Simulated assay, not measured.
Amino acid sequence: MSDTPSQQTRIAVTQRIIAHATRGWPHLGEPIVRHRGKFCYVGAVLAGDREPTPILRLRYQGSADRWAIAIYLPSDDRYTESELPTSFGPKTGTPEQGIDHTFILYTGPSSHR
């Protein structure tokens, strides 16, 4: 098992994130997705902002369907895997679960549920 996702995995995960976020939160437009090493960072332009806001970081767990989910804390300017509310589900999951567990805290419920 590799510590970092392959280029093919990064491309597929980026496409999945964009599709899921665009379907569920169309008012945000296309999310900003970037990869660095074992991490995938996702941001969006929130209402009233000109610049993208960081929302979540996914840490690769050896599979395109298994990532550790971390939420961005603007108050501390950092990502944390330990402060995601437990009522939102597991702290590891698919990229789509990461979107669902974090975007709702920043922008409200998804429009596709």
Rank of each mutant, 00 (worst) to 15 (best):
T92S: 09
R78D: 10
A21Q: 05
R57A: 08
H112Y: 14
G108H: 09
E30Y: 04
Q8F: 01
E30I: 07
R59H: 12
G24I: 04
I99F: 12
G43T: 07
P74E: 07
S2W: 00
I11M: 06
T102P: 08
A21Y: 06
K91D: 08
L58W: 11
Y60N: 05
E81C: 10
L84N: 01
D76L: 13
G43D: 01
P74S: 11
E83M: 14
R78W: 06
S63F: 09
R10N: 09
H27Y: 12
R78V: 12
G37A: 11
I71Y: 05
E96R: 02
R10M: 10
Q61H: 10
R34W: 08
R113Y: 15
D76W: 07
V13M: 05
T53Y: 03
G43H: 00
G98S: 01
T22Y: 04
R10Y: 03
R10H: 02
H101A: 15
D77W: 07
S6L: 03
K38L: 09
E96H: 05
T4W: 00
L105C: 09
T80E: 03
L28F: 09
I55K: 04
Y79Q: 08
P109C: 04
A68D: 12
I55W: 07
A19L: 00
R23K: 13
M1T: 08
S110C: 14
D49Y: 14
K38Q: 12
T80W: 01
E81P: 01
L105Q: 14
L73C: 02
R59I: 07
I32D: 05
I17L: 07
R16S: 08
Y72C: 05
E83S: 13
D65G: 04
P74N: 11
S75A: 14
I18N: 01
L28C: 09
